[in-house]
Write a protein that binds this DNA or RNA. Sequence first.
DNA 1: GCCAACGTTGGC
DNA 2: GCCAACGTTGGC
Length: 152
Amino acid sequence: MAYWLFKTEPSECSIDDFANAPDTPIVWEGVRNYQARNMLRDGVKSGDKVFIYHSSCKLIGVAGITRVVRSAYPDPSQFNSASIYFDSKSSTDNPRWIAVDLIFERKLPAIISLDKLKSSAKLSGLPVVQKGSRLSVMPVNEAQWQTIMQLV
DNA sequence: GCCAACGTTGGC
DNA sequence: GCCAACGTTGGC
Protein backbone atom coordinates (compact mmCIF):
# COMPACT_ATOMS: atom_id res chain seq x y z
CA MET A 1 0.00 0.00 0.00
CA ALA A 2 1.24 3.46 -0.92
CA TYR A 3 0.42 6.97 0.20
CA TRP A 4 -0.46 10.00 -1.92
CA LEU A 5 -1.51 13.60 -1.71
CA PHE A 6 -4.13 14.92 -4.14
CA LYS A 7 -4.83 18.62 -4.51
CA THR A 8 -8.31 19.95 -5.03
CA GLU A 9 -10.08 23.25 -4.91
CA PRO A 10 -12.76 22.71 -2.27
CA SER A 11 -15.23 24.71 -4.36
CA GLU A 12 -14.91 21.87 -6.90
CA CYS A 13 -14.53 18.89 -4.61
CA SER A 14 -13.83 19.01 -0.90
CA ILE A 15 -13.40 16.53 1.91
CA ASP A 16 -16.97 17.34 2.91
CA ASP A 17 -18.22 15.98 -0.40
CA PHE A 18 -16.69 12.67 0.64
CA ALA A 19 -17.88 12.92 4.25
CA ASN A 20 -21.44 13.69 3.18
CA ALA A 21 -21.64 10.44 1.19
CA PRO A 22 -19.21 8.14 2.96
CA ASP A 23 -20.29 5.02 1.08
CA THR A 24 -20.25 6.53 -2.39
CA PRO A 25 -16.98 6.57 -4.33
CA ILE A 26 -16.06 9.82 -6.01
CA VAL A 27 -14.48 9.81 -9.47
CA TRP A 28 -11.20 11.73 -9.33
CA GLU A 29 -11.42 13.24 -12.79
CA GLY A 30 -10.00 16.27 -14.50
CA VAL A 31 -6.28 15.68 -13.95
CA ARG A 32 -4.77 17.30 -17.05
CA ASN A 33 -1.09 17.27 -16.30
CA TYR A 34 1.12 14.53 -17.68
CA GLN A 35 3.29 14.02 -14.63
CA ALA A 36 0.23 13.70 -12.41
CA ARG A 37 -1.50 11.51 -15.01
CA ASN A 38 1.45 9.14 -15.10
CA MET A 39 1.26 8.67 -11.36
CA LEU A 40 -2.46 7.96 -11.51
CA ARG A 41 -1.83 5.49 -14.30
CA ASP A 42 1.27 3.71 -12.99
CA GLY A 43 1.41 4.26 -9.28
CA VAL A 44 -1.97 4.69 -7.63
CA LYS A 45 -3.44 1.33 -6.61
CA SER A 46 -6.60 0.15 -4.92
CA GLY A 47 -6.20 0.33 -1.15
CA ASP A 48 -3.74 3.22 -1.24
CA LYS A 49 -4.41 6.10 1.15
CA VAL A 50 -4.75 9.64 -0.11
CA PHE A 51 -4.45 12.93 1.71
CA ILE A 52 -6.98 15.41 0.35
CA TYR A 53 -5.37 18.85 0.16
CA HIS A 54 -7.46 21.96 -0.26
CA SER A 55 -5.88 24.61 -2.49
CA SER A 56 -6.86 28.05 -3.75
CA CYS A 57 -9.13 28.69 -0.81
CA LYS A 58 -9.27 30.33 2.60
CA LEU A 59 -7.98 27.39 4.66
CA ILE A 60 -5.20 25.86 2.60
CA GLY A 61 -3.90 22.49 3.75
CA VAL A 62 -4.55 18.80 4.35
CA ALA A 63 -8.22 18.31 5.16
CA GLY A 64 -8.70 14.56 5.37
CA ILE A 65 -7.99 11.07 4.17
CA THR A 66 -9.58 8.95 1.46
CA ARG A 67 -8.85 5.50 0.07
CA VAL A 68 -8.48 4.32 -3.51
CA VAL A 69 -11.25 1.88 -4.42
CA ARG A 70 -10.68 1.73 -8.17
CA SER A 71 -7.31 2.15 -9.86
CA ALA A 72 -6.52 3.69 -13.23
CA TYR A 73 -9.19 3.79 -15.96
CA PRO A 74 -9.91 6.30 -18.73
CA ASP A 75 -11.21 9.57 -17.30
CA PRO A 76 -14.81 9.71 -18.60
CA SER A 77 -14.89 13.50 -18.58
CA GLN A 78 -12.40 13.70 -21.46
CA PHE A 79 -15.07 12.25 -23.79
CA ASN A 80 -17.90 14.45 -22.56
CA SER A 81 -18.22 17.49 -24.78
CA ALA A 82 -20.35 19.18 -22.13
CA SER A 83 -17.60 18.88 -19.54
CA ILE A 84 -15.00 21.54 -18.85
CA TYR A 85 -12.53 18.64 -18.92
CA PHE A 86 -13.47 17.60 -22.46
CA ASP A 87 -10.46 16.90 -24.67
CA SER A 88 -11.19 16.74 -28.38
CA LYS A 89 -7.77 15.25 -29.03
CA SER A 90 -8.48 12.22 -26.90
CA SER A 91 -10.27 9.13 -28.18
CA THR A 92 -11.73 6.00 -26.62
CA ASP A 93 -9.21 3.99 -28.66
CA ASN A 94 -6.35 5.96 -27.24
CA PRO A 95 -7.48 7.78 -24.12
CA ARG A 96 -5.17 10.47 -22.93
CA TRP A 97 -6.36 11.04 -19.36
CA ILE A 98 -6.81 8.79 -16.35
CA ALA A 99 -9.19 8.74 -13.41
CA VAL A 100 -9.33 6.76 -10.17
CA ASP A 101 -12.13 6.37 -7.63
CA LEU A 102 -11.78 7.43 -4.01
CA ILE A 103 -13.88 6.77 -0.96
CA PHE A 104 -14.12 8.62 2.32
CA GLU A 105 -11.94 7.45 5.16
CA ARG A 106 -11.78 10.31 7.65
CA LYS A 107 -11.86 14.02 8.04
CA LEU A 108 -9.11 15.51 10.16
CA PRO A 109 -10.30 17.37 13.28
CA ALA A 110 -8.69 20.50 11.84
CA ILE A 111 -7.05 21.32 8.56
CA ILE A 112 -3.28 20.96 8.72
CA SER A 113 -2.32 24.30 7.26
CA LEU A 114 0.28 24.82 4.59
CA ASP A 115 2.21 26.93 7.09
CA LYS A 116 2.33 23.98 9.44
CA LEU A 117 3.46 21.65 6.68
CA LYS A 118 6.18 24.12 5.72
CA SER A 119 7.36 24.41 9.30
CA SER A 120 8.34 20.75 9.40
CA ALA A 121 11.83 20.19 8.01
CA LYS A 122 10.97 16.55 7.43
CA LEU A 123 8.47 17.59 4.76
CA SER A 124 10.78 19.81 2.75
CA GLY A 125 10.96 17.19 -0.01
CA LEU A 126 7.22 17.15 -0.52
CA PRO A 127 6.32 19.07 -3.69
CA VAL A 128 3.28 20.70 -2.12
CA VAL A 129 5.46 22.81 0.22
CA GLN A 130 7.80 23.90 -2.56
CA LYS A 131 7.33 27.28 -4.16
CA GLY A 132 5.94 27.15 -7.64
CA SER A 133 5.10 23.47 -7.49
CA ARG A 134 1.93 22.75 -9.44
CA LEU A 135 1.93 18.99 -9.19
CA SER A 136 -1.58 17.92 -8.20
CA VAL A 137 -0.91 14.22 -7.57
CA MET A 138 2.20 13.41 -5.58
CA PRO A 139 3.61 10.44 -3.72
CA VAL A 140 3.99 10.66 0.05
CA ASN A 141 6.44 8.27 1.64
CA GLU A 142 5.82 6.45 4.90
CA ALA A 143 7.95 8.86 6.96
CA GLN A 144 6.23 11.89 5.44
CA TRP A 145 2.81 10.37 6.06
CA GLN A 146 3.65 9.73 9.71
CA THR A 147 5.07 13.24 10.06
CA ILE A 148 1.89 14.78 8.71
CA MET A 149 -0.26 12.59 10.94
CA GLN A 150 1.68 13.89 13.94
CA LEU A 151 0.67 17.41 12.97
CA VAL A 152 -3.00 16.56 13.42
C1' DG B 1 -7.28 40.27 -8.01
C1' DC B 2 -2.25 40.07 -8.56
C1' DC B 3 1.50 37.89 -10.36
C1' DA B 4 5.47 34.50 -10.17
C1' DA B 5 6.31 30.08 -11.51
C1' DC B 6 5.35 26.64 -14.32
C1' DG B 7 3.64 23.53 -18.32
C1' DT B 8 2.13 23.42 -23.07
C1' DT B 9 1.84 24.87 -27.78
C1' DG B 10 3.33 25.78 -32.20
C1' DG B 11 6.23 28.32 -35.60
C1' DC B 12 10.57 27.97 -37.33
C1' DG C 1 14.39 20.29 -31.14
C1' DC C 2 14.54 25.18 -29.75
C1' DC C 3 12.22 28.69 -27.51
C1' DA C 4 8.87 32.66 -27.38
C1' DA C 5 4.26 33.22 -26.46
C1' DC C 6 0.57 31.87 -24.14
C1' DG C 7 -2.54 29.82 -20.61
C1' DT C 8 -2.91 27.97 -15.98
C1' DT C 9 -1.94 27.20 -11.14
C1' DG C 10 -2.11 28.57 -6.67
C1' DG C 11 -0.25 31.29 -2.70
C1' DC C 12 -0.65 35.71 -1.14
